[in-house]
Amino acid sequence: MAGHLFLDAEPWVDWAWVSTHVPTVLGYLGQHVELTAISLAGGIVISLPLGVAAYRWTGLRLPALGLFGTFYTIPSLAFFALMVPYTGISELTALIPLTGYNVLILLRNVIVGLDEVPRDVLDAADGMGYRPFARLLRIELPLALPAMLAGLRVATVSTIGIITIASVIALGGLGELIYQGFIESFRTPLVVGMVLCVAFALVADVLLAGVRRLAMPWARSG
């Protein structure tokens, strides 16, 4: 496998390969979407209650942010490898670290979003007779939504990129195509994997921007 030259003849995309490998490529894409969706869902399920708790009891912030901040600092390949003795080569090996990363980004944004709800609004809600739980659900969380959705977009795009690294230890996803392009010294799967990965990130980002518009009709201009 000699080094290539800049101006060699190999085309970046061999369409014949692409046309015969559609099912394989779609399979990897499906896996990629699945890993993204599950790890984001897991991140939301953990970070939302934890964020609300940390907002209420500020003593919880430092330990919670510290713990997940430490996870976030651990490089993904190392984190995946740390899971292998416990979960083997399975989807769980990828999902646990990815979920941990998402929790940090979402947790920060839940706390910041809730912190930024104006004091006046809370007073008004109290004056209108809202109980604490109803106030949280109907006033504070909706007002924190912009910050939370901003976090979700960052988490989504990051996750889609990081999943490619899972293929270094054969955990699937579009990274498998990048790996194949490297191992076989064949550019087409590499380019297909890269393009689909970036396209998926962009589509997901645009969709979440759409969710933002739907969820917050009062913030259309933003």
Partner: peptide, 15 residues
Amino acid sequence: RAIPSYGVLVIAFTL
């Protein structure tokens, strides 16, 4: 953030 770092490495290698 959207560009996979792994892909960037492999592209640098193929070039």
